[in-house]
Every structure is written in C-alpha cells, then in structure tokens.
Design a protein around this nucleic acid. Structure first.
Lengths: 352, 352
DNA sequence: TTGTAAGCGTTATCAC
DNA sequence: GTGATAACGCTTACAA
C-alpha cells in the first residue's frame, strides 16, 4: 500500500526547476539559463545542471513558461470540419510544418456555425495562442472577425475572403479557382461544347464565387452564347446532386458537358448519367473539380481540376511562421495554381 | 499617430483581473469569485464585477489560470495522419464532443514514426494536457508508452493493442474487426466460394491482425480447406494493390472472391479485375473493408463492412471525459460493432 | 461576505 | 558568471 503510494507519488509529482537547482547545487536562475540559452553559464554549471535534470527526469512546465514569456507555442486552426478531405489535407500539411517549428496545433470544428466560430475565436484568444489559421464557413461573421483582429495574434486566412479594415487585408493563402474553372470551361468549349453545366455548392464562399466567375469568363471570352453556361447551385449531398443532375440531363436542350465539384456531387452526377444510359464521354463529358480518389479510379477516369492541398497547408504555415517571427514582412498573400489533369472523360459532343 | 498608438494599446494590452477589480472597486479575490463560482459573493459585487468586466472587455487568461488550477482544459490527440479519412472522422467526432465539454483539442501527426511519437508524447506532457487520445502507428514503442503512463494524465487508446503493465490495460475504444471479417468471410463461403483473398495491409496493427484472425476463423468454422484462405499483405497504394491483384487473379486456381481494405487497395483490385475482363459479381465477388464513397458509387455498388468512425471518436471522448471527471470508474473499454452492408458485388462463384 | 497574500513554475532584471 | 528576487495573471486559504 505505502509502496503503491510511493510509486504514484514518483509518477505524478513533477520535478520543478527548484528541484534541479537543489540537486545541482546552483540557483534556479542558473538552471534556467543553462537549460535555455546556454548563454552566460560556465561549463561546470552547464554540466551539473544537465546531469541533475537528467537524473531527476525534469521536464520544464511549458505552461508556466508561457506565463512569463507571453508565448504559448501553440497555434489554432479553425475549420468547418476536419473530416472533410479538403480541410484534412490542409490541416495535415500545416501541422507538419508547424510541428517542425516546435509549435503545437489546436483544432476546432465550427460546422459553419457563426456562433461556434465566435466561441472558438474567443477560446483561442483566451488561451493566448500565438497565431491562428482560419477557414470560416462564410465570409460574414463580423463580430468574430473583429474579435479575431482584436486578439492581436497573427492570423492567416485559408482560401476565403474575410472582410477587413480598409487598407489591411488579412494575410491569406488563396487558390486560383477562377483561373482553374476558366481553363476547364475553355477546354470544353474548345472541344465544341456549347451547353455546359457547372454543379457547385452555393456562392457563399470564395471558392464557389471564383469558380462561377471563371466559368462565365470563359464563355464571354469565347464569344459563345452565355445562355449555355448553366450554373446549378448544389447542396453538397450525393442524393441531391443526383436528383438535380437527372432533371438537368432530361431537358430538351440538355448540357453536353458537366463540371462537378468534389466527391459527393460528382458521384451524384455520375449516377444520374448511368441511370439515363448516357455513356461518358460519348454522350456526356465530365470534369471533376478537385482530384479525388473517385475521379482517378472511375472508369473512364475523370478529367479533373487539381490543386495541391498540401501546398495550401504548407504555405499557410509558412506565412504564419513568418509573422510569428516578425521577420521583415515579406508577401502576405499567396495565390496557388490549379491544373487541369486530362484523362478520359471528355470528348467532342456528338452531333444531334 | 498618438491616436493610432492608443488604439493599438487598447487592442493589444489585455485587461487583467486587477483592472477589473479596480474598475469595480473591489478586490481581485472578489472578482475571481464573482466570475467563477459565483459562490460567496453579494449581489452588488456580482453586478459591479460583471459590468466592469464587460466594459473593459476582460477575458481571463486561461493560461495563467491553468498554472494555479493544474488543469489546462486541453486534450491531446495523437494519430499517424489526420488526413487519412479513417482518422479524420474519428478526430472530428471526438473534437465535437470534447468542445461541448469545454475542452480544446491539440492534434499531432506522427506519420507512424516512433521517434515522433515519443516527441509528441513528451510535448503533450510538458504542456500539461489534461488527457490524450492515442492511435499509435505500431504497438511497439515501449519508451513512448512508458512516458505516456508516467505522464499521469488519463489516456484512451484508439483501436490499438498497446502493451500495458500486468493488470492495468489501457482504457480503449476498439472496433470488432475480427467479427466483421468473420461475418464477411462466412457470407462468401455461404455463397459457395472456397478460394477467397484478403487484401490487407500488414498485421503490425490491431485492425489488420484482428481481420486476419476473423478471416481464418470463418474458414475453420465452416470446415472448408483452409488453404483457400489467401492472405495478401499490401502496401496501402493503389498501384501496388493493382499489381498484386493482377498476379493473384491470373493464377490457375485464382480466388473467386476478394475482400479488400479501404479505398486505395479496393481501387487497385477493381482495376485489376477490369484489366482482366472479369466482371463483378459474375466472375469475381468483392467486399470492401470500410465503407467509402468509392464502394457506394461504383457500379456495381460494392458490398462493404461498415463501422461508425463517429462512434469511435465519440466513445473515446466519452471515456476520456469520464476519467477526467474521475466519476466512479465505469467501463474502461468499448467494443464497437462492424456491419456487413449488402450491395451488388457478391454472387455465387460460376462453375468452372 | 470580503480583502490580503501566498503561491503555481517559469524567466528576466538586477546587483554582486 | 551567478544568485536573489520580482514579476506573469490567476485561484484559494485564511483573516477580518
């Protein structure tokens, strides 16, 4: 019994810097200096302190250190849903880079709920996180953004247009969805398509808005009838997309090509095509927005717009680190390219 | 200029409990009591303090509070890769539950590197996190697990068998992969299959080991030739799986059914079948382990083993919260079921 | 009920 | 170079 208690005590009671100081026969100040900078410490003290720390299994309390240094070594990451592959890869890459820099990452999902966003921002602020990566669910949540700015900690926005004070845009990593959509659309128009449907979730967020803009821009440039540019706003659910696509493909003047976002909407469109006996690419050309497993594995393989989520995460981490170190400003925004990966799902429309 | 400075000062300099005390005309102790328990405070003080806090925009420094209370309000989550959909959903669900309980979650990816695992465990410990959720990349990393135990903070293991001291198994959330694999195999045997291939990554981790055990158990129970149970260890790469499956399906005595893990391996197997002109399910039956988009959307739709990742995350969070609150032990392990979702990819083998 | 003061474990500022 | 000692912002006995 007493044996057990001893063991528990051994395990639980943590060694403090004072214990180390006593063991090494020096002052706490010396221990701190020896363990940190290594500056202004004699070789003897350095050695004794290291030995004592090792012997006692001392591990500094970073929590306490934070109180003094006013830096927590943690950054927050606010996304709507880490389980969404789109965010998961970004978070993954950012975390890797930040951990290499010795920082821990705190994640919080908001499910696109403005109230939660505010709560998370407040929580991050109260916990004094050194910085944050944010991908809000909507661009409109003024109270949250004011809080964000008031926090004083560096912030990097992930592929969103968050409103800002006049002349101080938020540092951000942006993806060039507009140019991507334009390229894809131009490609389809080049193949001879004149009625193309863009299946995308609402224009509430930057990526959707930019895609729609690029889509329309391609039609305008090519000088073809803009009425052929069919924008179909989608809930991000497979069933919903399937229903919508069915309706769309049954029309008299059905589109001869579809540009569909992500896994769910793409899957819905593919199912609809199958249900109607339309073969790809003979009867219908398809381009996926975002290169998912499904696009790559489907037969025929689906031509897709691809951008690097890892790059987004890495760039965001880099931007944040730059601000944290306060080293000469450098660029505060990054615009990442989108590529069109040609596969087997597009062909000229069959004459009618 | 001075205007700007003032504004910056307003923004950056944080209000402390002393500021609130001064503003409200009470002592810091009273402020603390008023803001926390609300116990032993007169209505007047409560009102004045609330007003002062509101007016000054006071937000308590949770970092400082932690130092006193010895609790950080944060839990760590160690996984090999949050971008892996398998973990992403678990992390998502756990985070949701924990945040509801007022806790923040710190994530760290280890890429299955034992050294990183140790580093992460140490970092979590140094930061004095209240508890942790752990899914190691391998069950063998003794130094890390000792550190983990030494930390003293409650730990919940995610679907792994981490070695433990004699009589104190780690609290854990386990998935019944063994029973799942057994059910799937039994189903195929019932359809008449006698040569079945199990494509799964190594047996280094619990899920793989359990699946193999269940697979073999089904053969043993059914009293059919155990030589028909083909275990094919896979890298988790599509190309590799495709090559392997090709080799497998070209054999004289090729398997008439395949059980394949996840998206990548499943995709490889499907491609191999297509390349060889094998139609599913006429020539080859297929069962997916894990219900992915690919399985649901493929034509024919793939019969799959499914378990709830959300439940894993939720259960883990629940188990951890229970320990954190120290409320009477309760069960320390959860075993979650695996279901077989019947779709269109399985049929009796064609006579040969 | 309220105020005072002693920490929590560090780091940083001083004299020496 | 080294050792006291004062913060950091908060909670919590303990006194009043």
């Amino acid at each position: 019994m007493s044996n057990m208690l001893t063991r528990v005590a051994e395990i639980v009671s943590r060694m403090t810097i004072r214990d180390v100081a006593r063991e090494a026969g020096v002052s706490v100040g010396s221990v701190s200096r020896a363990l940190n900078g290594g500056k202004n410490v004699s070789a003897r003290v350095a050695r004794d302190v290291a030995a004592a720390a090792e012997k006692l299994g001392y591990q500094p309390d970073l929590q306490a250190r934070s109180l003094r240094t006013r830096t927590t070594g943690m950054v927050g990451c606010l996304v709507s849903d880490v389980a969404n592959p789109l965010y998961a890869s970004i978070v993954q890459a950012a975390e890797a880079r930040l951990r290499d820099a010795g920082l821990l990452m705190v994640v919080a999902n908001t499910a696109n709920d403005p109230a939660r966003e505010r709560a998370v921002v407040a929580a991050f602020r109260s916990r004094r996180l050194d910085g944050m990566l944010v991908a809000p669910g909507s661009d409109e949540n003024d109270r949250a953004w004011r809080e964000l700015a008031a926090g004083g900690a560096p912030v990097v926005i992930l592929d969103r247009d968050v409103p800002h004070e006049e002349d101080t845009p938020w540092p951000a990593v942006l993806v060039d969805h507009r140019e991507g959509a334009r390229t894809a659309t131009r490609y389809l128009i080049g193949l001879g398509h004149r009625r193309i449907a863009l299946l995308t979730p609402g224009a509430r967020m930057r990526p959707g808005r930019e895609r729609i803009a690029g889509f329309k821009a391609a039609f305008a440039e090519a000088d073809v009838d803009p009425a052929g540019a069919l924008v179909c706003l989608q809930e991000s659910s497979m069933d919903f997309a399937q229903g919508d696509a069915l309706e769309l493909l049954r029309r008299d003047q059905r589109p001869t090509a579809i540009i569909a976002l992500g896994t769910r909407i793409l899957a819905g469109a593919l199912r609809a095509a199958r249900d109607l006996g339309l073969s790809i690419p003979a009867d219908l050309s398809v381009i996926a927005v975002g290169d998912t497993d499904l696009a790559a594995v489907h037969s025929p393989a689906i031509t897709a717009l691809r951008w690097s989520l890892e790059d987004v995460g890495r760039a965001a981490a880099e931007l944040l680190l730059q601000r944290l170190r306060g080293t000469g400003e450098g660029p505060s925004r990054a615009l990442l390219p989108v590529d069109l990966v040609l596969r087997e799902s597009c062909a000229p429309p069959t004459a009618k």
